[in-house]
Amino acid sequence: MADAIAFTDTLLKYTIIISSIFIGVSLLLLLYRIFKGPTNPDRAVGLDTIGINLMALTGIIAIYLSTPYLNDVALLVGILGFLGTLATAKYVEKGVIIDRDMD
């Protein structure tokens, strides 16, 4: 039984390391897409995907630290990413974020 627990601890450790590396590489590639993206919608998709990757990285850190407190942080990052995506989509579509029409 002790061998099985040691194996799962080792497997979890290596999975967290590999996942963190892949998410880090993904974040670097997304930063490149944001700075060199040919169009504004490409940049918006890059920002949205960075938010999703930050949520995943927060979840991985929560698993590594064995704490449920970072789940609130992941939800907050998700909500802020969603609001940012809405604002960016409105800007790309209309050219303004807040309409000043008093009809």
Score class of each variant (00 low, 15 high):
S20N: 09
S20G: 05
S20W: 08
I21N: 02
F22L: 13
F22G: 00
F22N: 03
G24H: 10
S26C: 06
S26T: 15
S26Y: 07
L28C: 04
L28M: 11
L30Q: 06
L30D: 01
L31F: 08
L31E: 02
L31P: 00
R33K: 13
I34C: 00
I34K: 00
K36M: 12
G37Q: 07
D42T: 10
D42C: 04
R43F: 06
V45F: 10
L47W: 11
L47R: 11
L47H: 09
L47F: 15
D48E: 08
D48V: 10
I50W: 04
I50T: 10
I50L: 06
G51Y: 11
I52V: 15
L54Q: 04
L54A: 08
A56N: 08
A56Y: 12
L57M: 11
L57H: 01
L57A: 06
T58M: 08
G59F: 11
I61S: 02
A62H: 13
A62F: 13
I63M: 06
I63D: 00
I63N: 01
Y64H: 09
L65P: 03
L65H: 07
S66C: 07
P68V: 13
P68D: 06
P68I: 13
P68K: 07
L70F: 14
N71C: 00
V73M: 04
A74K: 14
A74Q: 12
A74Y: 07
A74M: 15
A74R: 13
L75F: 15
L75Y: 15
L76S: 09
V77R: 01
G78M: 12
G78V: 12
G81R: 14
G81S: 14
F82W: 10
F82H: 04
L83D: 04
L83V: 15
G84T: 14
T85P: 03
L86I: 15
L86K: 08
A87C: 11
T88I: 13
T88L: 11
T88S: 04
